[in-house]
Design a protein around this nucleic acid. Sequence first.
DNA 1: CGACGATTTGAGATCTTTCAACGTTGGTGG
DNA 2: CCACCAACGTTGAAAGATCTCAAATCGTCG
Lengths: 244, 244
Amino acid sequence: MVIQNINGVTSKLLPQARAVNDFAVASSRDHLSALKTIIRTEGVRTYAERGKCLFRQGEQVDKFFLIAHGGVALARHGVDGSSQVLDFFFDEAVLSDMKEANSPATYSAQCLIDTHAYAISASSLRRSFAADSDLMFDCNQLLKDLLNRAYGNLTNLGCCHGEERVAYLLCMIHDSMSAASTRLSHIPVRQIDIANAIGMTPVYVNQILKNLKKHGAINMNKGAIEIVDARLLRELSGLYELAA
Amino acid sequence: MVIQNINGVTSKLLPQARAVNDFAVASSRDHLSALKTIIRTEGVRTYAERGKCLFRQGEQVDKFFLIAHGGVALARHGVDGSSQVLDFFFDEAVLSDMKEANSPATYSAQCLIDTHAYAISASSLRRSFAADSDLMFDCNQLLKDLLNRAYGNLTNLGCCHGEERVAYLLCMIHDSMSAASTRLSHIPVRQIDIANAIGMTPVYVNQILKNLKKHGAINMNKGAIEIVDARLLRELSGLYELAA
DNA sequence: CGACGATTTGAGATCTTTCAACGTTGGTGG
DNA sequence: CCACCAACGTTGAAAGATCTCAAATCGTCG
């Protein structure tokens, strides 16, 4: 009943409980092809190294990005220095600031690793809407995917304890990254980023990771996390199944 | 709170901080007028009483709802009986199951109070896209609003402690309800729903509400919550301001 | 009245954070 | 090559926040 299928289409529904993995949907579906194509062909090739931002909270951005190769964390920063990671994006993912042209972005897109991306202005994208109706459907689909991921994260934070939260997040990252052409052996996410994503302290995240390693779900090498048993991780996360 | 340096660039923190209230945006903007109009004119008038659902998790819905008068909580249910409230909707708000026609909804829309709404099928809505381009923009805008609210809630859960979380949620509900033509003196949300929305126990929420009452931000009458000082609530919520 | 759901209260158990110190890694400049 | 530094990871113990459990109260409805 595990939907581990990466490229094949295995959307088999289960009689009792269904697998949630909303996070897998975004990567497996091909619906964004029109959007991706136009960004790739008309967009500007951009490069940002680890730690830099594609855009910053407070800036007026109005752009769409397609990640060619890399990893990005969308994060919101509070006045007290706190920050909340809203979502992660890896190869083939599309992200934008989601704001009107005249209003500043309410979050930053920070590179987890050196990142190559295509950037296109939202206004020039809108101009193409008339010519290609698929484009707008793709934008819609993109937003739906983001929303479902956000709802998944919300449920993760609201309903789960530490170990489950970390397990769920790692699953999500794993699935997002499996769409990448080049697969990293380890996850390019710092423990601090994980902590900021699931609303916990880095110190505590470290403890939990130690436990997950003891369970045999992950492996750690010089602080880098490697996912060993994705199926086990999925079971450890409290959100593998929803009520019918 | 973890203070994090963004790779040397400490993101020149904020001369003056801006007010966030993303939650106010959705209700104040008039952008969804095309969408609302068509749902109101072509939709079917629906009535559901307190406790009933407009749609249920697991059902195949494929509809859009415009709430004429009432209150609805979008919630996801886990196999263990846990449930997470994802968002609240009141008068003039639009919601949908956000799924393809062939896939079941991953959450329920439960009425907090007796609710009158207009319902239109997503497919018939799509048929009108060609005739009215504003419609699709409105759908897009709706999704953006929902996403920004979800990100706001995510930040609330991830970065804030109990009292701040409750204060933020009450602010959000207050702003959502202020769009309503008929204003209730009290908030039609049970303490249990609040608990499910912010990822805490009803027992603890009760303690926090007692504190907020002591602060003079709210009042409680037979278990019903009344917002006395919305500005104070906003200050008590940790998310009134974002870093610039 | 009696049943039921929701709220309220208190105390102890559990989870999570904080603090402080130390270890590791990788880059920089002498 | 080495010393040095900054960022990140690791560890332990104490403090704090939140949950659980159990019981009492209150309101609504039949």
